[in-house]
Design a protein around this nucleic acid. Structure first.
Lengths: 343, 343
DNA sequence: CGTGTGATTGCAAGCGCTTGCATTTTTGTA
DNA sequence: TACAAAAATGCAAGCGCTTGCAATCACACG
């Protein structure tokens, strides 16, 4: 970890032990090619000398990196977006799972293609593979990247034409679930809050409109509100929207954070949730069950999804092909939809 | 990124350009030692050949890693703890700031000292320095680690004896601020919710008791509730506590998540916030201003702190000494304390 | 007491890149 | 036109490690 200069190398250990470097290498790697006695002696010496192997050199020699790059392709400056608890959970799972498989995790917030290294504008091969958490608006770049640089798994909206491995929730199904739940509660004028420029949100929107249609209703464009992820901005954007009441009696919010922002505005305008307006969120973030009213939401299987992404990536690294995976979503009924009122 | 075998190397580029490897290296690095014309030509070729430099080899040659390890020393399994939005914000800032300085970020959830690499039980030197986000219960290990492995900066409770660089909020001050705010509002029976085993929380507790004392009050042990970070557990733990009402009329919660959990229990018990009980949190997480009631809290300057940590680490890497830094905290008055009622 | 055998160990090349120094080419000038 | 100086390029060693293959060693057997 320390300055390279003060680091003790295998050569040093070899000298101390009076053997060759190769023997040290083998001893430390646990090879049976070296006599058990010698092996133990060398390990002892290495330990006492506070030796730590230079992974860099090791990996170079082994032609591997044992590192996976995890990328959150998020616009710089929008700190809040990454604040969405969803991202952390995902990151935590990925780190754990990759760790189990012996991989390090290299974090990035910017996609490799806009990376401008000072003096050298070339993408560095610093990982064995990469995981994109969210494709955002970068679909085509990711596709190119996958083709050129190989092992890639991405979290996001799964859609037919993908020729790389995408793992994502059944957003359409989730949107349908949320919307038809409110419909079944008797709501008929349901608004949509989210950013349909993002593929995932787009899919949730599709589920929303499908549900409306299958109840013989159609989408009211005035009730489709382009709402960003960031809670502050969501609050601002939904401010004028609530004034439309009573043109709506239900809200499908694309994320719990947006739901929280919307509820705040509704209260402020004296509109009661869920008595006057039902609201259903998406994500099932940790606090959603504890705020007031607690938020009815669509649960995504983040933990399992993370595991699957890692499995897939390892598979790809091993030469297997990997198909996209769509994860089931689940409706978690709490207070904000008002289901408990209609009993 | 792809399998090493298919990667094009500098040697290949050299051959294509009809120059030596050294010239390619220099051209790509932007050295003025190579003629401008040649440089452009080589870059062109490299670009077309889809060349990407092998950072690993480069770093080995340069005796650097250009990588900083960021460690969240969090007990495995407690996913929720890392879910605290605080961690994400910190991580995002660190990644950005380190990136600006040309460093990659290696994520870890486990401290290096309990790392057991298969076959090789030696700590790998894979980074130029390390940042611990939170010392948790690992104070002494971190100290040892800092001594042995050099460049270390840690986020956490700053305390006198530290011989490594710690950056942290003025937790005592924050605790005092929160508590005396409620005292000034006329509250006299203020409870404390947090986990005093953790140094930061311990300090917040100290601020809490100082504030009480300076108002001629003393700590009521029955109102000091050991409450974990995890919102689910916090909810459980504070459940029996609320039954103590009206033995308390104020709550200082060590984190906003705990505040959210406590408020949920209070409401459930029919106790009104802030009319019956004032509550002040800590962290100023994104949603704290938008839940109902919005949460009065102590703001930590996460963003600035992250920047400072990076500055400090770069300094240490450059051979400078780095003293601990204590960051100011700020009281953000919102609804949950009831300040607006007493006007 | 030779010699074959398997168990250990060492040699040296190589991973892809950087860089000090020597070498070659170009340029400026007498 | 010749030659010194400056500019551009190449050579080769080295970063710390792994590993195929050759060399050595200990021992047992005939």
């Amino acid at each position: 970890m320390a300055r390279r200069s003060s680091e003790v190398t295998m050569g040093d250990i070899a000298r101390m032990a009076g053997v060759s470097e190769s023997t040290v290498s083998r001893a430390l790697a646990g090879s049976t090619l070296v006599a058990a006695k010698t092996r133990e002696r060398i390990r002892e010496i290495a330990h006492n000398a506070n030796f730590s192997i230079n992974e860099q050199a090791r990996n170079l020699a082994l032609r591997q990196t044992r590192t996976i790059e995890v990328i959150f392709p998020i616009e710089r400056g929008t700190l809040q977006q990454v604040s969405d608890p969803f991202f952390v959970d995902m990151l935590a799972v990925l780190t754990d799972e990759l760790g189990k498989h012996g991989y390090d995790v290299l974090m990035s917030r910017s996609p490799p293609w806009d990376e401008e290294r000072p003096g050298c504008a070339f993408l560095g091969a610093r990982a064995d593979g990469v995981i994109f958490v969210g494709q955002g608006r970068h679909r085509s770049e990711i596709r190119d990247f996958a083709r050129k640089h190989g092992p890639v798994v991405v979290w996001g909206a799964v859609s037919p034409g993908d020729d790389y491995c995408v793992v994502g929730s059944d957003n359409v199904g989730g949107g349908r679930l949320a919307t038809s739940h409110m419909l079944s509660l008797g709501r008929r004028k349901i608004a949509f809050l989210g950013d349909t420029d993002l593929p995932e949100m787009r899919q949730r929107f599709e589920g929303y409109s499908e549900a409306l249609q299958s109840h013989g209703l159609s989408v009211d464009d005035d009730l489709v509100i382009h709402t960003p992820f960031d809670i502050e901005k969501a609050r601002e954007v939904s401010q004028p929207f609530v004034k439309l009441f009573p043109r709506f009696d239900g809200i499908f919010a694309c994320s719990d954070m947006i739901a929280i922002a919307a509820i705040a505005n509704l209260r402020q305008a004296g509109i009661r949730v869920p008595e006057d307006v039902s609201i259903v969120g998406f994500d099932d973030i940790p606090s959603s069950g504890h705020v007031s009213p607690s938020i009815t939401t669509i649960h995504q299987r983040i933990h399992r999804s993370g595991q699957i992404m890692v499995e897939k990536l390892i598979g790809i690294l091993g030469g297997e092909a990997a198909d996209p995976v769509v994860m089931e979503t689940e409706l978690i009924v709490r207070q904000s939809c008002g289901a408990h009122l209609s009993e």
